[in-house]
Design a protein around this nucleic acid. Structure first.
Lengths: 185, 185
DNA sequence: CTCAAAGTAGACAGGTCTGTCTGGTAAAGT
DNA sequence: ACTTTACCAGACAGACCTGTCTACTTTGAG
């Protein structure tokens, strides 16, 4: 079967996300994916490579899905955060895969951290673009504030009761966009 | 020496925070603390107990330090977030110990997660109290929004360049407090 | 048809981890 | 003087981890 690599990556995605990268071993992945160990190491030179492949795929998925959401400018911002809050309050949500992975890899020089940094840079730029569309007076600082909000939604969705997340996310978004105190102080 | 327990906890705090809980082993802790293995297991029945002691101590420290900060009501809120941003942009900052620990313990029933949940409940209540002092019209939802902001500051301080964190934290705080769109939508 | 690529099963080496245990020392209270 | 408590040094068991290896089978392209 040609889809052994696909099965490995799907299984790893499920287990890494649900239980963490370090706690899930290769033996578990190959057992649940139904592949032999040699097959695994044929497709992925080491476990770290698999972890990077997992995160890169998540990055690629978001990079396609978020810009494809409906709306323009401010409406799209509301749609994006509404969707983020919906995901973050859904059952099975275990936080942002990038934040969870970064917490498990303390070394900032690790390749995993580079992928996380790339994702964050991309997300901030995506926010910046939408803010420029709306004619926001300080898109740079505000884009970073929206990154903070995104992180808060992801963390709180994983750790707190999910009911409040959606309301807080949208209220915060409006607070950040409507205030007159945008700049640094 | 009676301070073996203290040395163990100090060493564990330093290593757990800097490198993560799972990646730091008992052997490493006892070596750097300069204690025998039997001494370690005399004071802490298991590694998990040490992890809980580490987090509980961090919780206790914050529970004392934050309310003791200067100011009243809104001024205290600004002081608190200013301090959080300062810590979050200092060298050596590796994120919030509670969030990092929670990311390493996927099981919500684990004792570590209970400590994290307690901390978050306490922090939200602390915010709520300060908001009530300021006469804020919707202290409940806003307190939760400030929890999200706190999470964002902690995460971004660990993963992004620290310069922007302080400005974003205070601008976001003002945005959340000054907006007219507080409630759920 | 042939042959390389991709697959299976599973043993194995070498390392790390937690937690237990033995054995002995030092100090401190009673 | 005695006994308990805390401490040190380090061996050890048992589990688990990653990554390599042998040996064999399947499959698909040329």
């Amino acid at each position: 079967m040609k889809d052994a690599r696909r099965r490995i990556l799907d299984t790893a995605t499920r287990l890494f996300y649900a239980e963490g990268v370090h706690t899930v071993g290769i033996d578990r992945i190959i057992a649940e994916a139904g592949v032999a160990k040699a097959t695994f190491y044929h497709h992925f030179k080491a476990k770290d490579v698999l972890v990077c492949a997992y995160l890169t795929e998540q990055y690629d998925l978001q990079r396609v899905a978020l810009p494809a959401m409906p709306g323009e400018g401010r409406a799209k911002l509301e749609t994006v955060f509404s969707k983020l809050a919906e995901i973050g309050s859904a059952p099975g949500f275990r936080g942002c895969p990038f934040l969870n992975a970064a917490a498990e890899f303390a070394d900032p020089a690790h390749p995993v951290r580079a992928i996380v940094a790339d994702y964050r840079t991309w997300f901030t730029g995506f926010m910046h673009g939408l803010l420029v569309e709306t004619g926001h007076p300080s898109p740079g600082p505000t884009a970073h504030q929206l990154l903070l909000l995104r992180d808060g939604v992801a963390v709180s969705g994983a750790l707190d009761s999910p009911e409040r997340v959606r309301a807080s996310a949208l209220a915060s978004l409006r607070g950040l966009l409507d205030t007159r105190a945008q700049g640094a102080l």
